[in-house]
């Protein structure tokens, strides 16, 4: 049995104010897949992500993580399996120093102090933030905060990484750095993003959400080649697939 499978069946969610954010969502994501969830603002991306580790309860349908149904009893286990990186790192980094923050998860899991120390050092090195360990989060730049936020989740050794808008608000260099980092992960990865070029580069599969429903599910080139679908869902081709503004050459022409 693999822990890395995410299965969502007929998921529905209605907010208490009556907004139906998710209408009927079904998909299976298997071991090691890298999946981008895209869609317009308000399409239901963030709501969907919050279901994956039980932060929100479904109104209907079910979620299975590695064949374990998500319920109150399995929640602690599932939260260890699914590492969630929030959109705003200020929400995620709440401890006094970077070290304390990265150690927060492992300490809650009951690891020994020595074990925690080793893990924290390892993951901080992995995300290239070893030199930040004693700094308070408010002294970090946006890119540094993001990398540390990822480290706080990696320190719990999750099987599945879920990230909400990982490249949001980063400068081009920090964005590149983060994408390289995410490319190297062996976990099952699920991102939401409006950064379609990142999705094209990092994901082997794209799920398009529109008004709370799955509108399309397939390989990125197929999805981004379908202009009608993109227009319907208020999306457009990634910039790297659009024509050059100077010479008019379209690098994606041959593919489509």
């Amino acid at each position: 049995m693999s822990h890395h499978i995410v299965e969502v069946r007929n998921l529905q969610h209605v907010y208490s104010d009556g907004t139906a954010a998710l209408k009927d969502i079904s998909f299976i994501i298997t071991h090691g897949e890298s999946v981008g969830i895209i869609g317009a603002n308000g399409a239901g991306k963030s709501t969907l992500l919050q279901h994956l580790n039980g932060s929100l309860e479904p109104t209907g349908g079910s979620i299975h993580i590695g064949h374990t149904p998500l319920s109150k009893g399995t929640l602690p286990d599932i939260r260890r399996t699914v590492g969630m990186v929030f959109q705003d790192p200020d929400d995620q980094l709440f401890m006094p120093t970077v070290y304390d923050d990265v150690a927060f998860g492992p300490l809650n899991l009951g690891y020994s102090i020595d074990d925690v120390e080793q893990r924290v050092t390892e993951v901080l090195e992995l995300v290239g933030a070893g030199h930040l360990r004693d700094k308070p989060p408010y002294h970090l730049s946006g890119g540094e905060k993001k990398r540390v936020a990822i480290a706080t989740v990696l320190s719990m050794s999750p099987d599945i990484l879920v990230m909400d808008e990982p490249t949001n608000g980063l400068d081009p260099f920090a964005r590149r750095q983060l994408m390289k980092l995410m490319k190297d992960f062996k976990h099952t990865r699920i991102f939401t993003s409006h950064d379609l070029d990142m999705v094209l580069e990092l994901c082997g599969r794209v799920i398009v959400l529109h008004e709370g429903e799955v509108w399309a599910d397939g390989p990125p080139l197929e999805i981004f080649g379908n202009s009608k679908l993109l227009a319907e869902c208020r999306l457009e081709k990634p910039l790297s697939m659009q024509g050059c503004p100077v010479c008019g050459n379209n690098p994606a022409k041959d593919i489509n």
Binding site: Q50, N53, S55, P76, R79, R80, G83, M84, F86, D88, D91, Q92, F94, Y99, D100, A103, F104, G105, L107, N108, L109, I113, V116, E117, T152, V153, M156
Partner: peptide, 18 residues
């Protein structure tokens, strides 16, 4: 959101000193 982030990392009400 912060509370959610804490729960997502196994917070059960106790802060552990490191």
């Amino acid at each position: 959101r912060i509370h959610m982030a804490m729960l997502a990392r196994g917070f059960t009400g106790a802060f552990h000193a490191s």
